[in-house]
Amino acid sequence: MSMDYALVLHQTVFGGLAALGFGVLFNLGPRSLVWCALCGATALAVRSAGLERGWSLEASSFSAALIVGVVVQLLRRRIGVSRNTLGVAGCIPMVPGGFAAKAILGLFALTSPTLENPDSTLIQSLVFSLRVVFTIGAIATGLAMPTLLLRLRK
């Protein structure tokens, strides 16, 4: 399966920018913002590469979060900031907010008096909801695993 490198690069750049913007909102220090942008870019690079390879969104998001979690743990001395917060801020661009909105909009539409295809609307809404739940679960688990393993080693 061939990979669209331009798309991966595009997602990497905008993933980094999105994480940077959220880093400012979360009041990360100026030096941490650079790490935050790098985490966001890494996360989106891994996720996009996974999606290009044909992996599911959930598997790609899990892999991306796991790699961000490992990198943040490995660089903990240089980063000098709360590692968990940095990992979370870096993974924020992967939180499927768009899917969540579509899922709830679909549920709202079900109550419309002029709805034409209630079955397909319900199924689509359910699929979006499940993807939100599984993707958030995958991201959080991927991020938490390095910390939990490190705690076991101690």
Partner: peptide, 17 residues
Amino acid sequence: LVDLAVGAACASFGRLL
């Protein structure tokens, strides 16, 4: 600055979407 950063973040999210 936070307003502008959030604007940039959402615009980037937009491109991702």
